[in-house]
């Protein structure tokens, strides 16, 4: 008993030093390349800095001013829709995909890899493909619908508020389905088969088994995947920048694109930093739920 406690004390000693040592390489990298930019970003948001013009400290003025900015209101609303409304679609469609892929399928590895494509192809490039599919004049979808006699003029994919928001959300969902699908598939494969067998013996049908056995097992994973997806989507930029740049009339602006416009084209990087940092509490809120949730399950 005595020797064990002496040993474990030694371990604790070694653990603390080893722990710090192991943290170091990553932390140094993060400190040099992330911490400084991050704190500078916070500082910028409290100044009226423009590109090439050192600014002065103006307190929370940028933040307060944004509260009166109509375009910012619209941007905030758009971002919420974009990040939150898309998630249930991604989750449901991803779940469907996972349920299919969880069967014995021929060529399952190449099929899985191909289905991952929307998620793995650089967004800057796949969005260009969509940009072409949504072309106001040459859209193949418009062409097909006209050919089939459903409509008689081109669909204004990115120029009409409702259709544009739908189109943008769809591309986002399209990109997210594979990630949800593969993650949920991982969850499905971890469900012990005995549970299903037992439920089947108890007379549960397929749907009941799904609700009572599968769903509770993958609930945690679904939650984590959704939160991650929300966090990523909030901070999105490339997809909308390629498709609409926030147009028409700001109806598709999100935090990332609006900050970019104000900062790089309008040169007000102080204001741009404030726009971006408005995201931080929202993202932190979702992450704290995420982390608490994970801690509970761990």
């Amino acid at each position: 008993m005595n020797s064990v406690s002496i040993q474990s004390e030694k371990f604790l000693d070694r653990e603390s030093s080893l722990g710090v040592l192991l943290m170091l390489p990553g932390l140094i990298l993060l400190a040099v390349f992330l911490a400084y930019p991050f704190f500078l970003g916070i500082w910028l948001s409290l100044t009226d800095t423009r590109i090439g013009m050192p600014g002065e400290f103006i307190g929370l003025w940028n933040y307060v001013d944004l509260l009166e900015d109509e375009i910012f209101h619209q941007t905030a609303l758009n971002t919420m829709v974009y990040a939150l409304v898309t998630v249930p679609f991604k989750a449901v469609m991803g779940l469907g995909l996972a349920l299919i892929l969880n069967n014995q399928i021929r060529f399952s590895n190449p099929i899985r890899a191909f289905i991952m494509l929307p998620w793995i192809v650089p967004t800057a490039l796949s969005s260009l493909g969509w940009f072409m599919i949504f072309d106001p004049v040459f859209s193949p979808i418009s062409w097909l619908m006209i050919e089939m006699g459903f409509i008689d003029s081109n669909i204004n994919f990115l120029g009409d508020q409702l259709i544009a928001v739908t189109a943008i959300c769809w591309v986002n969902i399209w990109r997210g389905i594979p990630f949800f699908g593969i993650s949920i598939l991982a969850g499905l494969q971890a469900v012990p088969p005995e549970l299903h067998e037992q439920a089947a013996i108890d007379g549960a049908n397929k749907f009941q088994r799904f609700i009572n056995v599968t769903l509770p097992q993958i609930k945690g994973l679904l939650m984590i995947t959704s939160l991650l997806s929300i966090i990523w989507t909030f901070a999105d930029f490339q997809l909308i920048y390629v498709l609409t740049k926030g147009g028409p009339a700001n109806q598709t602006h999100i935090f990332g694109t609006y900050a970019y416009q104000i900062g790089l084209f309008g040169t007000e990087i102080g204001m741009a930093a404030a726009i971006t940092l408005y995201m931080f509490p929202i993202l932190a809120f979702f992450s704290i739920i995420l982390l608490r949730y994970m801690r509970k399950t761990a």
Partner: peptide, 20 residues
């Protein structure tokens, strides 16, 4: 062409060059 609300710098080139 009322879809112009979504056009960018390149859209009108394409539309013109294809006779639309």
């Amino acid at each position: 062409d009322e879809t112009g609300t979504s056009w960018d710098d390149s859209s009108n080139n394409r539309a013109y060059l294809s006779g639309k």
